[in-house]
């Protein structure tokens, strides 16, 4: 008897579920966004894979050439320098762009409101400036003959070194300018994260006997870790976007390939050589490289992040 009842009950539920109407409204609201993303992000990505594996032909079918484009990119005379520089750029940027803003943000956090606002505005200003403008101004500040720094140290009998024309230092100038530009923005992100930390914790730790360094290391950094992860990822993304402009304006990849990188290489393939296959292959390589970096970051960091 009970079994029959159960059977009746389940079939009734199933029928009711089938008759219940599916609510289409979320789909309708999401549709435009999904369409845009599909059209401008995912479709080009698929095309990219296609373009990297085929040779375009105006007067006939495209020819499948497999890994030829990839080999061509790897064979590029500047490829090794470009790949090496890309890694240097990303990994050296991180300490300056991700870690340096932490103590700066903490410093501003402990100031009063007025002074804090002044510093926030002053440090954020470079982020708002156009990178082209920033690059040109920095060229002129660093110029060893007429630049701002030379005019200050010249009377003291010192000579500004040729930082942008020297193979050893050019890339660090680019990294430095990029960092200078982004630090203010990351400070604001950290300040947002800090605002969620109750001052009680800091006071409790001070009474426990902690000095500034201990408070930073054992309290602020752990509680800030979700923000740090976010800043790390967004910094890598921003850095990639920014990595073209200063080089195009300041050094065009030189001197002696010391500032070229994978992104600049793809640009050159596409816009200076119109080599679609190579640039697609190069772009795909960059995509994979970044994917690896971010995956590694997420796996490694997730263990350390504390979500309260």
């Amino acid at each position: 008897m009970t079994q029959t009842l159960e059977l009746v009950a389940t079939t009734r539920i199933e029928r009711t579920a089938a008759r219940r109407k599916i609510d289409l409204r979320p789909a309708v609201f999401l549709a435009p966004f999904v369409v845009l993303v599909a059209l401008f992000t995912y479709w080009p990505l698929i095309q990219l894979v296609y373009l990297s594996l085929f040779k375009l032909n105006r007067s006939g079918p495209d020819r499948f050439i497999g890994a030829d484009n990839f080999l061509g990119v790897l064979d590029n005379a500047q490829f090794h320098d470009a790949a090496y520089n890309s890694l240097i750029y990303i990994f050296l940027s991180i300490p300056f762009k991700v870690f340096l803003p932490i103590p700066l943000a903490v410093f501003i956090w402990t100031m009063g409101a007025k002074l804090g606002n002044f510093y926030k505005a002053a440090l954020f200003l470079p982020t708002l400036l156009s990178f082209v403008v920033v690059s040109i101004v920095w060229i002129w500040m660093l110029n060893p003959v007429m630049g701002l720094f030379q005019s200050v140290i010249g009377p003291l009998g010192l000579q500004m070194p040729s930082l942008l024309s020297d193979v050893a230092s050019a890339i660090y100038v680019i990294i430095g300018v990029g960092a200078w530009k982004l630090i203010g923005f990351n400070i604001l992100l950290y300040l947002a994260g800090l605002s969620a930390i109750s001052r009680d914790y800091v006071e409790a730790m001070r009474l426990d006997g902690a000095g500034d360094w201990v408070v930073l290391r054992r309290l602020i950094v752990p509680l800030l870790s979700p923000t740090i992860l976010f800043v790390a990822i967004s910094t890598v993304v921003f850095t990639i976007q920014q990595v073209f402009t200063p080089i195009d304006v300041m050094t065009q990849g030189g001197p002696l390939n010391s500032t070229t990188n994978l992104f600049y290489l793809v640009y050159q393939y596409m816009f200076e050589s119109f080599n679609v296959g190579y640039s697609a292959a190069g772009a795909l390589l960059i995509f994979l490289l970044l994917g690896l970096i971010i995956a590694a970051k997420m796996i490694w960091f997730e263990k350390l992040v504390h979500y309260s």
């Binding site: 590029n76 005379a77 500047q78 024309s165 020297d166 193979v167 990849g253 030189g254 001197p255 002696l256 390939n257 050159q268 393939y269 200076e272 050589s273 080599n275 190579y278």
Partner: peptide, 21 residues
């Protein structure tokens, strides 16, 4: 198809000369 690379080789050659390498 590798014109830009060729140009960069020449550009780098001159750079290397200027820098005494």
């Amino acid at each position: 198809t590798r014109v830009v690379e060729i140009q960069i080789v020449l550009e780098n050659m001159v750079s290397a000369l200027w820098q005494g390498k």
